[in-house]
Amino acid sequence: MVKIKTSNLNLHFGQNHVLKNVNLEIEEKKITAIIGPSGCGKSTLLRTFNRMNDFKDDMKISGSIMVGDQDIYLDKIDLSHLRAKVGMVFQKPNPFPKSIYKNVSYGLDIQGKFSKSEIQAKVEESLCAAWLWEEVKDRLHSPAMSLSGGQQQRLCIARALANSPEVLLLDEPTSALDPQSTARIEELCVALKQRVSILIVTHNIAQAGRISDYTAFMYLGEVVEYADTSQMFTVPKDKRTEAYLNGVFG
């Protein structure tokens, strides 16, 4: 099943042509990694899927992106709804300066259509799913900033899960973390693919190899190669992919 489909996607920031003719089909409930050297447009691509690029004044986009059977760049699209459905976790853990509980309940609170007990249940469920519940269940109301970096990042994942997303976008989620926390987040990703489709941007090639089912290699705004991860990592088709995987540039 295809979850996300981009067709002839082009994106400009002012004069810069950042994404060039991107055509991708992202499989449902799999992990798809996007790799490539810095500045190749991989984060920008990720941010098109929940329209987080919209805030840049000089952004121009053409082509289409279907999430499920919705074209998400139609004018009538409800951005709040889209962003709840397509969750995102950022490079550096960014919990709100609120309690752990309030962080997770935030997305549900703002929707304003859930009862207190529903929210409570959902918070617990999300924290469990992000493997954080055991560590924080006795201090749900202490500040989120008191958690360690790895815990904060899992909190951010729990926060996104509370919205019951269909897709989870991870933008280099482990680049600010130590190896142990990184390993834990990687395992978590693999476990989470039962419930959501995951797209992960990473500049850690080994990480893509460890956890992803499919990999897209981007270079200078183009998707150079997109294939089954094991296949790409053993027999890359494109010279540039091979060079990148072998650490020739990056």
């Binding site: 709040s80 962003r83 950022f90 935030y106």
Partner: peptide
């Protein structure tokens, strides 16, 4: 980052 986190959650 806090602005982005909130917007990305659908706020």
């Amino acid at each position: 980052a806090l602005r982005e986190a909130s917007l990305a959650l659908g706020a």
